[in-house]
Design a protein around this nucleic acid. Sequence first.
RNA 1: GGCCCCAUCGUCUAGCCUGGUCUAGGACACCACGCUUUCAAUGUGGGAACAUGGGUUCAAAUCCCAUUGGGGCCA
Length: 462
Amino acid sequence: MKTRFAPSPTGNLHIGSVRTALFNYLFAKSNKGKFILRIEDTDRERSKPIYEKDIIDSLKWLGIEWDKGPFNQSERTDIYEKHLKKLLDEKKAYYCFCSSLELEAKRQDQMARGEAPKYDGKCSNLPREDIEKNLSEGKSCVIRLRVPKVKIAFNDLIRGKIEMDSSLIGDFVVAKDLKTPLFHFAVVIDDELMDITHVIRGEDHISNTPKQILLQEALSFKKPSYAHIPLILAPDRSKLSKRHGATSVLEYRTMGYLPEAIINFLAFLGWNPGTEKEIFSLKELEKDFSLDKVQKAGAIFNQQRLDFLNGFYIRQLSVKELAKRCKEYIGDHPDLEGILSLYQSRIKRLDELAQETDFFYKDDISYQKELLRWKEMTDSDLASTLEKLETILTGIPEKNWNLKNIQNILLLEAERFNNRGELLWPFRVAMTGKKHSAGPFEVSAILGREKTLKRVKAARLL
RNA sequence: GGCCCCAUCGUCUAGCCUGGUCUAGGACACCACGCUUUCAAUGUGGGAACAUGGGUUCAAAUCCCAUUGGGGCCA
């Protein structure tokens, strides 16, 4: 068994495309087959090396490894030309010189009459002299496949039998000229030559499949099995696009998502193991993935679920590993691991780290005085609490400045208040300047005696 | 417009093929409570769905048809 992922390098790798890559990869792995990467860069204008790099970097980051390739279609034009010539020679394809203006007018006309828009076959039987004359004059042309009137049926591995009438398709364009084959043509040739046994792709290709089958028949190629997977949708059920936010894989990396989370999330968009297990590593997926557990209906990209999974995987990491992974998001600190262990369970994305922990990195912090107030506390209550806090903390000598001591002493003192919060809330805000944060004992232990006292003093002056 | 695909909680889905075990299960999100100085994490509990209408059948989420809705392809 052999599958392929065949993206066009005309933009950054889309998160939806990655899911297609993932399913192809998983299907190959779960069947001990091969998975290849093919770059469909026949569109010279829109294909860019930078996007090709993006595709490769994205797949590598996610751990989706290909067995062979990448193969570039742009380097295979001789092969396509050979097959195009053959079709032309066998009169299975022909040159068409109709202008796009002419075609558009006909199309409008057909649609107005409620017919399927298709080519009317005007150039299908042009005399040889006319063709040669037109070609030598450099008249603009395309190459069309001569489509016989047949019923085309294929068995989709996910949807079952799908049938279409070829008379609705008409003689479609397979190449602009001998050197520039179009999408369907290059795909069919490559899938044959690369021995692809299973084509797994988005359901937007269902309507393309009959065309490719027609080409396979014209070229006497073998037919791969097809599996059309459901599309990933935006929350409004339209196709997921830029206007819905991030779509490229590497953008997700920048936002601080872990590859483990992305893989797990994407796998469950349209697939499930049929059990209640929902946490899967790539390796586990490789074992358990199966096409007959793939859904037929489109799935909405639910970022809240991705966030949950990402938070989960962040919590699974050892603090050391977390430190390694968040280098781009947080500065160096003598007690970086201490900080991270405080925030590991509080973040869903690595990029939240900088903002949440900024007070560890600053000399002075700023915040509104109001924030120091615990519930109904009066100004004088607050002032005396802060004074008391300073006295208590000053009483802890440098050599005893550690989490255990700070916690024991403060907790004991806090019992004298009506509510612990009266002492501990202002303490925490004085340390962090934030409404929400890790606890004050842990924070001041990392901050150290000097900074802690400095911040309490600063709070008193507000 | 024509053709094709699809339809279970707000979302991802189990169940559908092989009707009865479904007073429809799980997860995310949401709400409440517990823990707690705040926020998380964590524990417990809760609300929440078979698109509609016909059929087939003793029995339909499950099979068939239609409608509606959504999506895709054709330029």
